[in-house]
Design a protein around this nucleic acid. Structure first.
Lengths: 327, 327
DNA sequence: TTGAAAGCGCTAACAT
DNA sequence: ATGTTAGCGCTTTCAA
C-alpha cells in the first residue's frame, strides 16, 4: 500500500497538517527543523502526495491541458515546445492528451477526459474539428483555445492561428511575381486550414486576372506519401508552378519529380507552405515557408491565461519563402 | 462556478448516488429511463465529473503516465504512437508529461509530478538519466519502465530497449563486410545508448583484428546540426567509412560531405543508426537502420501492465540497413 | 431501483 | 509553531 500523509505524520510524530506544510514549503508556518525532518522521512518512505486529493482540497490546479490530434505532419511538435516553455515560465504544468489520428470519436472522448481534469484551460491543437466537439468544449465551464483552426463565422470560438487566407495569397503572389500564370494548388485538405488557403490562392489568381482550371487543384492530407501520390495529378496539365499545401507535400512532389525526370525548378517551380524542423534537410532545392509555430505555442498560453481575443500569428511568408534559384 | 454532482442531482430530483450510477453507466443498478434523463440533464448543464474526486473515491486510475525527456531527435514520437495504441487497446488512458530538453532538474520535477498522479505505472522515454532520478522512481511505490536506456549492471531497473551493443556490432560488421578497415564512429553520446554502441563497434573492430585509432571516434548529441559540425572531425584521417550514431547525424554528415565535394558513398561510406519517419526523405543515398520504435512502444505497455522482465526489442539491422549502391 | 452516509487523502481555516 | 477539524466531489457499501 502506498504511504499516505497519515503514515508520514505518524512516522514523524506530527499532525497531517504539519506534514502538508512541510511538503508545500510553507516556510513561514513551520519551524525549519521540523520541516526538514518531515521531508526527509517522507522521502525515505517513498511518499508522494496524491495530486487528486490535493486538488480536491485546495481547488487549484495551475495546469494547462493540451490535446493533440495529430496527423501525418509534425507541425504540432514545435507548437508544443512553445506551450511548454511559456507554461513553465508562468508557473503552470502542462498535461498532454493524445487523441489518436484523425479519429473524431476518440477526439470526443479525449476532450471529455481533458475537461474532467479540471485544468485551468484547454488548448486544442488540431487540423480539423467538427461542430459537436466544439460544442462540448464551449458548453463546459473551462476556458479553451483552438490552435491552428478557426472559422470566422464563429467568432465565439477563440483561436490562435496563422492567417491561412493570407498565406494562400502570398504564396501564390510569390509565384505570380516570378512570371508564372499556370499555378496549381496541391495537397490542401477539406478542413478550415485547407479551405482558407484555397480561398487565398483563388483570390490571388483572380486578382491577377487569371482563370483557374479546376484540374489545377488537388486535395490531400499534407503528408509526404500523399505528396508523392499527387505528383501524377499535376502531370500533363501545362503547369509551370505549384503551391504545395505543406512542406511535406512539397517534399513528396519534389521526390517524384526527380523520379520522373522533371527538373525542379527549371521545369516546375514548387513552393511549400509551412516550415518545420526538416526545412533544410529535405532537399537543398526546397526551403519552406516557416510559420512561427513556436511563437504560436507561447502566444496560445498567454492568450488563454490572460483571456485575450483570438489571434493571428503574423507570418512573413515572402521574406522566408526563398525557393532558391527559382527560375 | 462549475456544476458538481450535487447540482446535477438537485436538478434531476435524485440523489448524488443515482447521478454517479447514471454517468458511470452502471446499467444493472439503475432504471434506464432514470439513467438517460440524468445524463441528458448533466450534458445540458455542461457537467463534467471531477476526475480528482472520482479517483480519490474509487482509487482506480487506469492511466499510464509517460515522461518524455526529448532531445533533438524525434525517435520518441513513434514510440509514443505505439504506447498510445496499445494503452487504448488495454483500456488505459495515457497522460504525457514533458520534461523539457535534457534538463536534469526539470526531469526530476517531472518524475515527481508523474508520481503524484498515482498512475498505474510510469514509462520514461529518455536517452539519459542519472542515478538520483532512477532512485526517486524506484523508491516510490509505482511500477515503471525505462525506455531506450538501460544499464546491465542494474538489473533491478526494468527497461525496454533496443540492444545497442548488437546494433553497434552489426552496423560495423556491415561496413567490414564491404571491405572497409578504416571505419569511424561519429555522433554517439556519453549516455548508456552511446556507450553500448561504442562497445559494439569496438568489439566488431577487435574481432576483425583491427586497431582503432582514437581519432576515429567522435562524440555528439545525435542531432542534424551536430552531424554537420562533426564532419570536419573525420576529415584527413584516412577514413573510408563511418558509422553515424543516429540517422540525423548521418544526414548532417552527408550534407557537409556534399558541401566539401566529398562523394558519398564513393569516397566515404556512411551508415546511420536509428531510422525514423525521415528515412527516405533525407537523401536518396541514405537509408537508415530502422529500429522498430512502434513495437517498442506497444511492448512497453504490455511489459509494464503484465509486470514482465526487461526486454530487448530485436532489430534486424543488416536486412534493413541497405545503404543503396554503397561501394 | 434508489437514497443516506461514510470516507478516499489532502488543505486550510481556526484554535491553541 | 503545531494540532484539530471540516470539507473538497465523488464512489460505494448498506438500508430501505
Amino acid at each position: 500500500m502506498k504511504p499516505t500523509i497519515k503514515n508520514v505524520a505518524k512516522a514523524a510524530g506530527v499532525s497531517t497538517a504539519t506534514v502538508s506544510r512541510a511538503l508545500a514549503n510553507k516556510d513561514n508556518l513551520i519551524r525549519p527543523e521540523t520541516s526538514a525532518r518531515v521531508r526527509k522521512i517522507a522521502q525515505q518512505m517513498g511518499y508522494h502526495k496524491n495530486v487528486a486529493a490535493s486538488r480536491l482540497a485546495s481547488n487549484i490546479t495551475k495546469t494547462i491541458a493540451v490535446i493533440i490530434n495529430y496527423t501525418q505532419t509534425d507541425f504540432w511538435q514545435t507548437i508544443l515546445d512553445g506551450i511548454l516553455k511559456r507554461a513553465h515560465e508562468r508557473g503552470h504544468k502542462v498535461i498532454i492528451f493524445s487523441a489518436g489520428e484523425h479519429d473524431p470519436q476518440r477526439l470526443n472522448e479525449t476532450i471529455n477526459e481533458a475537461l474532467e481534469h479540471q485544468a485551468t484551460g484547454i488548448l486544442l491543437i488540431s487540423g480539423r474539428i467538427d461542430h459537436q466537439q466544439v460544442n462540448t468544449l464551449s458548453n463546459a465551464h473551462t476556458p479553451y483555445r483552438l490552435i491552428s483552426i478557426y472559422n470566422l463565422r464563429h467568432p465565439e470560438h477563440r483561436f490562435i492561428s496563422s492567417d491561412d487566407v493570407k498565406i494562400g495569397i502570398e504564396a501564390t503572389n510569390y509565384l505570380l511575381q516570378k512570371g508564372h500564370t499556370k499555378i496549381g494548388l496541391v495537397g490542401i485538405d477539406h478542413s478550415s486550414t485547407g479551405q482558407q488557403r484555397l480561398f487565398g490562392y483563388q483570390k490571388a489568381m483572380t486578382n491577377a486576372g487569371l482563370i483557374i482550371d479546376p484540374g489545377w487543384i488537388h486535395y490531400g492530407n499534407y503528408s509526404y506519401e500523399n505528396g508523392k501520390e499527387l505528383f501524377q495529378e499535376i502531370q500533363g496539365r501545362g503547369l509551370t508552378a505549384v503551391v504545395a499545401g505543406s512542406d511535406m507535400i512539397a517534399a513528396g512532389l519534389i521526390k517524384e519529380a526527380a523520379r520522373n525526370d522533371v527538373k525542379v525548378p527549371d521545369q516546375l517551380s514548387i513552393i511549400g507552405i509551412d516550415g518545420s524542423i526538416i526545412d533544410e534537410i529535405i532537399t537543398p532545392e526546397l526551403t519552406t515557408v516557416n510559420q512561427d509555430f513556436f511563437k504560436m505555442g507561447t502566444a496560445s498560453v498567454d492568450n488563454l491565461l490572460d483571456d485575450d481575443q483570438s489571434l493571428f500569428i503574423p507570418t512573413k511568408i515572402v521574406e522566408r519563402a526563398s525557393v532558391k534559384d527559382l527560375n
